[in-house]
Design a protein around this nucleic acid. Structure first.
Lengths: 227, 227
DNA sequence: CTAGCATTCAAACGTTCGTTTGAATCTTTG
DNA sequence: CAAAGATTCAAACGAACGTTTGAATGCTAG
């Protein structure tokens, strides 16, 4: 048995992952070449293939490095507030907070490159390439199941199908907010000063999502009846 | 003066645009090669450069062909309901309906390739490439200004900055919903049967967005005071 | 009919891509 | 110290990319 897995961390590996995170976010996967990537990482061109095997494997590694930790943190936060509630059902606001809080806290710490990854992740939700989507889905599955159960417990009167759609809308809003931080200007004349005040953004997002999640159901019943 | 501009439409041009719409949606811009694109369009490899000048110019043409019409339709729909209201301020629901109705109606007509474009558009909102973003912003600007004014008239009591953010969230939800039609399954066990019932989807989306737009403001005031 | 322009075509252009190679260098281990 | 393995390096590989070219073909106007 070799002891390679116990050796100190490979500096080059993490430098490549950091560079990939930033460049993938800035230019996308295909537009980022191994040459500019390894140049930014201060590594040789062959380093990526040596350490990861291929460019696709590098992409996968970039997601694995962060996504597992993120979803673990989300579940931990959810269980923390559940403990606090001592058996009583949580409020929707608490569940929402447990999910988006992790994203926004990561968006905040620029020093760790968390922002790069957060924006990359937001963009990749709508990436058309099948294998990437499948990987994301697989890495998200446990947290998704957990939060769905929590919402069902908090909103027992809401039809399951409607809940799924509203969760879909909520993730969409979050993904878009994380990815398109400068599209706010598109709407017109927005001073981007407080764009990165994560606390204020979290409050805004929470208010919007909570209201959307709890939107009245009656108007939907009309449409369904008409059909 | 030559009369080229009065001649019958170039079949090849539109065939290329249609093929580009579908392939860009399926694989993205960079991953779509001129060779597979022209092959799908039944045109020669050199046809794109002959008719459009370059691949980038083709991308721009794909957006211009649909986006102008879409935003014109949006503004027309908004003015129609404004006429109906006869001077009284519109309800938020009416304004939301004027905006998303055009998108969802286009998503419905699969025969015209509208679905391809709609999904492509949703994906491109979060595209990192600067020139594409700039083009989208430019093509959206008139409609954006118009709808922002309509919302301000409908919600005079809402702070401008807060309105901008909520519009941002709304567009995010719409963009994500259009782009990631199969991500609903990610949440778990969703039967995709009614996914393309545009009437039901519109009702769901409207209920969610209206509630989010009208979310109470008090919780935000607390955060701002604390800061 | 034919001259002139628009369009199509097959072939090739130079560039860049991801990956591979085999030797050189660093690091660890016996 | 010496052998073995891990890592880095410069160089090259074939393939695919977007684009250009110049001749062939289609179409229209005089």
């Amino acid at each position: 048995m070799n002891l390679r897995s116990l050796k100190p961390p490979h500096e080059t590996r993490t430098r490549i992952l950091d560079a990939a995170e930033e460049l993938f976010m800035q230019h996308g996967f295909e537009a980022t070449s191994m040459r500019q990537l390894t140049a930014k990482a201060g590594a040789n061109l062959a380093a990526v293939n040596y350490h990861f095997g291929s460019k696709d494997a590098l992409i996968e590694a970039v997601f694995r490095r962060r996504l597992d930790a993120m979803n673990t943190a989300r579940i931990a936060e959810l269980e923390r507030v559940e403990k606090e509630a001592a058996g009583r059902p949580l409020s929707p606001r608490q569940i929402i907070g447990a999910f988006i809080g992790v994203s926004l806290r990561m968006l905040e710490d620029a020093k760790d490159g968390g922002r790069n990854f957060t924006r990359l992740l937001g963009r990749t939700y709508s990436d058309p390439q099948k294998p990437i989507r499948a990987l994301i889905g697989q890495l998200y599955a446990p947290a998704m199941e957990r939060f769905k159960a929590a919402f069902e417990r908090a909103l027992p009167q809401m039809p399951r199908e409607e809940l799924i759609w509203r969760m879909h809308f909520m993730f969409g809003t979050l993904a878009y907010t994380l990815a398109a931080t400068d599209t706010v200007q598109l709407i017109a004349g927005c001073k981007p000063e407080d764009r990165y005040d994560a606390r204020l953004l979290e409050a805004r997002l929470t208010a919007f999502l909570e209201a959307g999640l709890l939107a009245p159901l009656h108007s939907l019943a009309d449409v369904k009846k008409a059909a």
